[in-house]
Amino acid sequence: MSAKPPTPPAEIRALTEARLTFGRRGSAVDTAGALAFALDHARARAAVEAELDLPTLAAALDRMGLAHRVVTSAAGDRSGFIRRPDLGRRLREDGAATLAGLGPVDVALVLGDGLSATAVALNGAAFVADLAARLDRMCLRLSPVILARQARVALGDKIALALQATTVVMALGERPGLSAADSLGVYITHLPRPDTADSGRNCISNIREAGLPVTEAAGQAAQLIAAMRASGQSGVALSRALASGALPPARP
């Protein structure tokens, strides 16, 4: 059993999360350090490999009184999803039937696995419920929560088009880092098209217990949606307009 690595001084920990060396220099990483790294990587890999836990998500949404549907991208499974991002951006053929008759709506709410179903399991349902309540108060018509398997960000555009939604919120797991495997990212797009460029979206990232709290993220998302619907634009154009003060700050 190796000794515990020396604890970094608190003032250094406040400055950086980097894996600095505080003990002896000049040898290999000690056993405790090597195994700690391996555990962090295993956590990240587990998050990437995880599938959406549909029964648990459905039960959580039922409790919150939110309707839901399930769609799958053309990627089919995790391995195909990782290797073929193009397929993760398209709906599988049966998607149109699943979504038929649910629109038109103002805002499509989508919860996708992305690169970390772990993030969705921890905070996905809470985020969409919080956001849905805020959008309800803004008198917007919402879609059921669409649970999207093997989903990349742009799958949200295809879902929105099928729902005739003017704004789409795609919340999904971000690529796990070594220090955090549970970050939820939210991409919001106004007037989505089949070929929306990334510059047409606004993003809120790092939503997790040790990062941006769910309530704060939902508040930011609601403000962005209000600004988008008031100005008719999203993405870089919206950010620029907000930064220049051309738009009044929205108060949902």
Binding site: E17, A18, R19, L20, T21, G33, F37, D40, S179
Partner: peptide, 8 residues
């Protein structure tokens, strides 16, 4: 090379 192999 980065500290501990982890680019934060």
């Amino acid at each position: 090379t980065v500290p501990g192999g982890d680019d934060i």
